[in-house]
Design a binder for these strands. Structure first.
Lengths: 226, 226, 226, 226
DNA sequence: CATGAATGAGGGTTCATTCAT
DNA sequence: TATGAATGAACCCTCATTCAT
């Protein structure tokens, strides 16, 4: 599937349609690992099992390849969350938990999450791509989450907070986990707490809803993760 | 301050000792702005007001310069917080607020915060630096914050939570703001909510302590998500 | 005529025999327009309505294609002038005028004239072709013209001049017009005098025969192109 | 002086100012010999005795180098002829002879003449340069020669001819000789008549003034070059 | 110490040529 | 026979690094 050299010659024709995807996969993996600038286009080609020149049959330049990687990886992932929001019926808190977990699984567990790291590292060198990323990924995501907060506040489920600011509190820890995983976390260092990201997310939700302060009033301290 | 070439001869002597620091400052600013790979060593020299060759009198290679920048920027910024922890008397919540605000001011408002972005981008290409960063920055910071949580829990101020996991919830939003500021936020795009980072931090603290859920002040526990 | 890809299947059979010529035509046009090195072989194929690979079925390399273009374009255009010389009866001056006009029409008005430009540009890179060109085109042409001069001198029609040197005076202006037309003249710049090449040739003949100097003696100053 | 490698190391500093000229000379020679496209920039550098990178310290691209070659070679050669025209007193015929001979010596005997060949070959690929060449070289030259003709006609020395058209007749043979010399003439072929370009020019002048036709009437047929 | 001219390995990209279909 | 995907050698240009001054 991703074996370097050309395996049997009879497969060539069949590969033709898979090539773009194979190249995108290779590029994503390497860009995440080494950064965009530090990845040589020949490496991408080699990882996809083709020669340098072949890469340029499918993408006219390294930068266009980068854009294609972003489009392909993030393009459709946004609309899905939106749909969930629209069809959800129960309390917003439930939806938020589901969204956070889903996000972690989609970004934290797949190389697509590494794109965030790339964007952070290269945004200033590629303003055009940064703008694309903001328009296609960041803005829709934030808007959707803000809408969840807004509805919760409107229904009285949530305290009255600024939805836009709350979104960043919401996002922060998950983003942190994702970014960490693809940079320092990938260095082979043994980082105690990051061993269990799901637990962090669970606690994040628990704290978000109930707060950190002890409330002697009623609940006798149902903390998460004893 | 940054006048290139030859100023008055008397100033030169004075400069000589400042050179290493001037070079590190220049390098830090550029690495943060453009990334390590995309910064040309000649640019660094020019920004420090010296010639290309001079740079190599102080640092044997671009990579060593990079390491020096990181080392220099990270050194000993940690101890201060530790002291504050030891001498603090009031509730831990107060200390946490002070620490978050302090952190934002020190990282968000100074170029040193850009180091986080650099580390994120280059950690995998410089594992030794990453290890250094973990040992000198991440671990101490996390340990200190964990200690704050731990004390709060012990005193009954906080609910019983896993301190290590809580640290990441705590850190996430601030880190997010800092990283954003040095990458996408620097692209000139207009990003609504990020216009007021202090408000985000304030809300972060508010939510952290009191939770998002509406609590009719005594009510029988409307906790979300058991 | 130049419809690419697959026309009707019946036309294809017919085309097969025309292919070599179509390829040569396409190559000639492009070599004249852009030069040999700057013309991509795929362009030649595309202009001939075939694929890149097909070109190599007919010509083993771009260089061989170039040689074939030259050979094909130059073949046997010389003999005709020769015949004219042999059967001509009147004064040599008349013949010269006819030859010059004929030459201009054949070279100046057809893409074949561009070959001269190509030869000039590429002769040193393709010495064998240059030799071929000298043998097949330059020498016969010059010899024929020299013969015209020689006869004119022998019959007393012309002053006694060195025929070989005279040939170059004869050729110069026409060559100049042809070359210009295919290089600078094709750049869209507005070049006053070159708007009327025929007038230049007419004047060339007039000057050649009667000279530029005013001769009060007898003929009452029959200048060309008042 | 033009020995490839770096001779003695002490000369380096001294060479610095000579470098641009050395590079231009090398580039001119190679462009004339092989054409612009077919000359590798590394070849130019090697011929100038420097490395590839050094070339780019002086000229930002191969194309800019090309432009510099043209400017440097042709820039000032035009005005000089003009001066001669202004201060000349005797008959225009004398001036024309002088100009033609001068031109041949300046273009035919120096590599600068090869630029004409380059322009011919590359004009269509570099319209900007072609425009420059027309403005700076062709137009001034033609205008000057037309002026000579015009004065001769006005004074009665010459027959009434169209000056602009006459210029092309005048130029043609010289141009032909120059171009030939740098293309086919440089292939090592033995080309009889071209062995003596000065003779061709002399005959060109003789024919131009007196014409080719035998004129029994007055002067007893003083032909040039028996 | 400081300079900046010079180097040359290396990276992105092109394109003549091949070959499986 | 025709195709066009694939190759890989070259080419232009950059830039980290060196070194003579």
């Amino acid at each position: 599937m991703s074996s370097p050299s050309h395996a049997s010659p009879s497969q060539r024709q069949r590969r033709k349609e898979a090539r773009p995807q194979e190249l995108l996969d290779a590029a994503l993996a390497l860009f995440v690992e080494k950064g965009f600038a530090a990845t040589r286009s020949e490496e991408v080609a080699a990882r996809a099992g083709v020669s340098k020149g072949t890469l340029y049959l499918y993408y006219p330049s390294k930068e266009e390849l980068f854009k294609a990687v972003i489009r392909e990886s993030l393009g459709s992932k946004i609309a899905e969350g939106r749909e969930e929001l629209d069809k959800h019926q129960g309390p917003m808190a439930e939806l938020l938990v589901w969204l956070m977990q889903e996000w972690w699984m989609r970004l934290g567990q797949t190389p697509a999450g590494g794109i965030m790291k790339i964007m952070l590292a290269e945004a200033r060198n590629f303003p055009e791509i940064a703008a694309f990323y903001v328009d296609e990924v960041i803005d829709p995501s934030c808007n959707m989450l803000a809408e969840v907060i807004r509805r919760g506040v409107a229904s009285g489920e949530f305290r009255p907070v600024d939805p836009d600011a709350a979104v960043h509190v919401l996002i922060g820890p998950v983003l942190h986990l994702v970014l960490h995983q693809y940079s320092i976390g990938a260095c082979g260092l043994d980082l105690g707490p990051k061993k269990d990201p799901e637990a962090v997310i669970a606690l994040h939700m628990d704290l978000l809803f109930k707060g950190l302060l002890n409330r002697p009033d009623h609940e006798g301290g149902s903390a998460a993760h004893a």
